[in-house]
Design a protein around this nucleic acid. Structure first.
Length: 255
DNA sequence: ATGGTGGTCCAACCA
């Protein structure tokens, strides 16, 4: 089974790139963030005609997540239990015997801001949910845009970024609490190129300078980590004309 | 270099 995550920063703008990427990489499951589409406008037929089923949780202008799968998508949930949130940022579903959570973690804006407090609250609620989910599903994967660079090696210039949003100790502690639910970072199971990142700011020629962060992740329970045979970041689409600011992240599992 | 780019939707917000 091959799964992938990609923050597309508007599915309307990026649809052709997503379809092309699907045709090339043929993942079994692709989860998208920042679709920025209301459900009525989700291009389900574009995926359906290519052999993919879809589930989506959208809103106008902001946020929005979608899960695209070659297998049936069952037991869909579109909110964190007991957490009141108008922002559409999660979609959990059972696919081919794996519970797969698609998440778009809040950006947090600036350390100490209201949005930062919302990010930490959101992560606490997410972690409580994940704790419950991993109890119920031995094969559990949570993937998406976490908006957290877990370690200094995930940051192009750790000293410049130290303490700022996406890298702060509070965010890294929240990420650690998530891992403590019994999750493992697929990407770090394998030797990876130095300076591997998944996001580069549109500004200041960040991609050209590889001034990025690794903030998109695939976290899995032990049985899946054991079965994980490959994990990588595909930075190629970031070099496209009119690219998303994020690259897809992939992981493969043997049955 | 304290700016710069890009998406949504036309002013201002979000990243």
């Amino acid at each position: 089974m091959k799964i992938a995550t990609w923050n597309v920063n508007s599915l309307r703008v990026r649809l052709e790139q997503v379809l092309a990427w699907l045709a090339t990489h043929r993942p079994d499951v692709l989860v998208l963030q920042e679709t920025k589409l209301v459900d009525e406008k989700f291009p389900a037929d574009e995926f359906g005609s290519r052999g993919y089923q879809v589930a989506f949780n959208g809103q106008k202008t902001y946020n929005g997540v979608a899960t695209i799968s070659r297998f049936p998508i069952d037991a869909v949930e579109t909110s964190i239990p007991k957490f009141d949130d108008p922002q559409r940022r999660v979609l959990a579903a059972t696919i081919n015997g794996v519970r797969i959570a698609n998440v778009y973690v809040p950006n947090g804006s600036e350390v100490g801001s209201q949005k930062f407090a919302y990010k930490l609250d959101w992560l606490r609620a997410l972690t409580a949910w994940v704790q419950e989910e991993v109890r119920q599903h031995q094969r559990y994967a949570i993937l998406g845009d976490f908006n957290i660079a877990p370690e200094d090696r995930d940051v192009h210039d750790p000293d410049k970024w130290r303490g700022s949003v996406l890298c702060s100790e509070a965010e890294r502690a929240a990420f650690g609490a998530l891992l403590d639910c019994g999750l493992h970072d697929c990407f770090r199971k394998f030797e990876q190129p130095e300076k591997s990142f998944s996001w580069w700011d549109y500004r200041a020629g960040s991609y050209r300078r590889n001034a990025g962060l690794r903030i998109d992740h695939i976290l899995v329970t032990q049985p899946l980590q054991q079965a994980c045979s490959a994990a990588s970041i595909d930075r190629e689409p970031r070099g496209n004309q009119q690219p998303s600011d994020h690259a897809p992240v992939l992981a493969e599992f043997s049955d």
